[in-house]
Design a protein around this nucleic acid. Structure first.
Length: 490
RNA sequence: GGUCGCGUGGCCGAGUGGCUAGGCAGAGGUCUGCAAAACCUCGUACAGCGGUUCGAAUCCGCUCGCGACCUCCA
């Protein structure tokens, strides 16, 4: 497995050669959605980004176990009703079982992810299904002396932990600052220190989701589920942990602390974080009313959208930016992405029809190598896409016979181009095979009829065919050697 | 206030010491019944001010602007 993949590790704040702990296996854990609402544009980013990483690692030959959790318990609504679970709160409002809500939004999440061709994780564990693992971890942390119980709730003891370990190793926080930071919040009086976080919370009587435990009838703290499920499925130490930058502190920082306390080992070798999404230069947030649900994006029914944007357009748009930079959504930018994607996928079908020549005028292997150079530099998908557009130019040049490739070179180029676009970037015109075959046959017939009309200089008929097809979003292009067609795929 | 990051041509977005990123939009041209596509050519950008250097968008400092996190938001 000779390659030179470098990844930016948040833990060390630098790019490092990627060397898995147990090659060829790679364990990757990514923080998934909290299922109490529909996924919006902000959720699309980590899903697509870590899908890219998963696909690329697999492409390199690694056997990746990709774990992405579903949080269906434990998130507290702190702004209004103190100590109430987000899922529970929504459930009460809609008079549904909490699990019904979680199931509904899980299904909706999966649906939009499928539409964007986001690969399913190898394992998708639910927090509510791993209460036992979480309680076991709390016990270990308590036995090690890093947690204390107050009134049925268990808190992680930051001050104690900081004596032997570095709380802040990931986020760059200074513990002394955290400990002296005296911002008063409700329900803090039980903690020895404001920086301490809950491992287990005693549930109030109206709290719907609760489980029995040695400490109280209650529910686990939020940071715990990822530590417990990551350990369960990937081991005490695994390769990659991903998520949004907003989770860096306190969530991921606390995960490290919990695992260190329970298992005595740094749980993750490479921490990868995707940057945030903005809309028209503005932070995206529910309170600002600009967190557009993906369903609305695909349907184009939001005020801020001029038109619908297809799932593939959103995917492509996300991939056109590097994952560690902020990404700004705007109509102008999305429309540019839409056209660029169209050009890229159109090249894919031209590629299939190319004929080999007697000689090669250039070397596709070096083109392919440049693609690897791009991706090996911390998954630089925008650089890869730039390289693919060079490939598009070449495809057109080959079609026009301005460049040539012998059969073996053409195969190399064709396979490589297709692999990058379809397998690694996951950009795929979503049509079924039989459907494609039928359409192809029909289109061939229509084009032949129109060609006959043109030969008879019956341009009225010829244009009518083209215009009617255009109304069905099918575009005809007359070229020197026949007529091409393409259809919108959204 | 603390920690971290960012500011690139009309828009988006790579690049991190010398060599055209790329996409979209725009202009001109080739092709063409028309159209569309494709192809060719064209903008000489890097927040501001200093400094280091033979040479800086790229390193250093300051200023301005933007953003993330600071108890549960991807």
């Amino acid at each position: 497995m000779e390659h030179l993949l470098n990844v930016y590790n948040t833990l060390t704040r630098r790019k490092e050669p990627f060397e898995p702990l147990r090659p060829p296996h790679v364990g990757m854990y990514v923080c998934g959605p909290t299922v109490y609402g529909d996924a919006h544009l902000g959720h699309a980013r980590p899903a697509v980004v870590f899908d890219l990483i998963y696909r690329y690692l697999s492409h390199l030959g690694y056997r990746v176990r990709y774990v992405r959790n579903i949080t269906d318990v434990g998130h507290l609504e702190h702004d209004s009703d103190a100590g109430e679970d987000k899922v529970a709160r929504k459930a009460r409002l809609e008079q549904l079982e909490p699990m019904e809500v979680a199931q509904y939004y899980s299904d909706r999440y999966h649906e939009v992810m499928d539409m964007m061709n986001v690969s399913k994780p190898s394992i998708e564990p639910r927090a509510s299904g791993h209460i036992i693992e979480q309680m076991e971890m709390i016990k270990k942390i308590m036995e090690a002396g890093y947690a204390y119980e107050v009134n049925g709730s268990v808190y992680f003891d930051i001050a104690r932990y900081s004596r032997e370990h570095h709380y802040g190793i990931l986020s760059g926080r200074v513990v002394d600052d955290l400990l002296t930071y005296t911002r008063e919040l409700e329900g803090q009086e039980e903690k020895r220190n404001p920086a301490d976080f809950a491992l287990w919370k005693k549930a109030s009587s109206e709290h719907i989701m609760q489980w029995p435990s040695p400490w109280s009838q209650g529910f686990p703290g939020w940071h715990l589920e990822c530590s417990a499920m990551g350990t369960r499925y990937l081991g005490e130490r695994f390769d990659i942990h991903g998520g949004g930058m907003d989770l860096l502190f306190p969530h991921h920082e606390s995960e490290i602390a919990q695992s260190m306390a329970a298992n005595g080992i740094q749980p993750v070798k490479y921490w990868l974080h995707n940057n945030m999404v903005t809309l028209n230069g503005q932070k995206m947030g529910k309170s600002l009313g600009n967190a557009i649900p993906l369903y609305d994006v695909f349907a184009g029914i939001h005020q801020l959208l001029e038109k619908p944007y297809s799932p593939m357009t959103i995917r492509f748009f996300i991939l056109q930016a590097h994952y560690r930079g902020t990404l700004d959504f705007s109509n102008e930018a999305l429309q540019a992405a839409e056209k660029g994607l169209k050009r890229l996928t159109a090249a894919l079908s031209i590629l299939e029809k190319l004929e080999p020549a007697g000689g090669s005028s250039w070397n596709p292997a070096s083109w392919r190598d440049d693609c690897y150079v791009a991706m090996n530099d911390d998954f630089n998908s925008p650089a890869l896409i730039a390289q693919l557009f060079e490939g598009v130019r070449m495809i057109h040049a080959l079609k026009d016979k301005k460049e040539t490739l012998v059969a073996t070179d053409l195969e190399t180029f064709s396979n490589s181009f297709r692999t990058w676009v379809v397998d690694v970037l996951g950009l795929i015109p979503e049509t079924s095979e039989t459907h494609e075959k039928l359409t192809g046959g029909l289109m061939e017939l229509i084009i032949r009829l129109r060609q006959r009309a043109r030969e008879n200089r019956d341009f009225t008929a010829a244009d009518m065919i083209r215009d009617e097809l255009a109304r069905m979003n099918i575009t005809l292009r007359d070229t020197r050697d026949g007529t091409d067609w393409s259809a919108e795929t959204d």
